[in-house]
Amino acid sequence: MVTQLQSPEKSNIIYPDDNGEPMSNNTDQFRLIVWIKENLELLFADDPNVFVAGDLLWYPVEGNNKLCQAPDVMVVLGRSKGYRGSYQQWHEDNIAPQVAFEIWSPGNRLTPMIEKFRFYERYGVEEYYLYDPQTLELTGWLRVESQLEAIEQMDGWVSPRLGVRFQLSETGLEMFGPSGEPFRSFVELDRQIQQAEARAEQAEMLLEQERSRSQALESRLREMGIDPNLL
């Protein structure tokens, strides 16, 4: 077996974990990034070979530490979960992120966003989604051979890779898992858990009350000389 050694020039290159850019420019952008990223984490929680990350630098080519992008959210199917300082594709079976999300903010400029689109198109992203929370506009692109082509109708679109459905309403972007379950915020999930716990406690209390009534009835029947087991 032949072992391919890394050249000294490449092995000495440092790939920074930080590009100096902020994760978000405002609270709304941050909320949406976290909302998408964490719900995708939850969706694929039981699959050890789906890696989801937010604002993680992706280096597609070994030896070039200037060539990188940090998608707001990216999904890599076929790669294990776990810590990464950056996503160095040559260490990941050369698997590029298949899905990338970007949330537009007032700080974004057209030229860098075009460059980001070209980067995703060139280096293998299969689905790219861009959402503007100011205009409530969602744009999507799907890879057709070597190009990312615009998706004509995003309202109701289902991601081929993720099985996630997108929906646009008067309040903004909504997303749903393959079983129809809506993406929720941490606050909504916490309230849902609290409500479920409250229902479980109420059911347990009613069951305990029923046990008490049953025991009282048994005691009364025995006092009357009646064996409740014979009834």
Rank of each mutant, 00 (worst) to 15 (best):
residue 46 D to M: 08
residue 49 N to L: 12
residue 188 E to Y: 03
residue 60 P to L: 01
residue 30 F to V: 10
residue 149 E to Y: 02
residue 125 V to Q: 00
residue 92 E to P: 06
residue 169 S to E: 10
residue 179 S to D: 15
residue 176 F to E: 05
residue 189 L to V: 04
residue 62 E to D: 13
residue 26 N to Q: 04
residue 137 E to Y: 13
residue 109 R to T: 09
residue 200 A to D: 13
residue 116 K to A: 07
residue 111 T to L: 13
residue 206 L to A: 15
residue 55 D to W: 04
residue 56 L to D: 00
residue 182 P to V: 10
residue 20 G to I: 01
residue 183 F to D: 04
residue 54 G to D: 03
residue 80 S to A: 15
residue 217 L to W: 04
residue 53 A to W: 01
residue 115 E to W: 08
residue 16 P to K: 04
residue 112 P to G: 02
residue 171 T to W: 15
residue 189 L to E: 09
residue 140 G to D: 01
residue 194 Q to V: 09
residue 196 A to Q: 15
residue 194 Q to S: 10
residue 125 V to S: 00
residue 115 E to V: 06
residue 208 E to F: 12
residue 127 E to K: 00
residue 138 L to I: 02
residue 200 A to L: 12
residue 35 W to E: 03
residue 205 M to H: 15
residue 27 T to D: 12
residue 222 R to E: 05
residue 214 S to W: 10
residue 12 N to W: 10
residue 214 S to G: 11
residue 148 L to K: 02
residue 162 L to W: 01
residue 175 M to L: 14
residue 23 M to C: 08
residue 192 Q to S: 13
residue 230 L to Y: 14
residue 85 G to V: 08
residue 14 I to D: 09
residue 61 V to P: 06
residue 164 V to C: 04
residue 76 V to C: 05
residue 68 C to T: 13
residue 63 G to E: 01
residue 191 R to V: 12
residue 196 A to S: 11
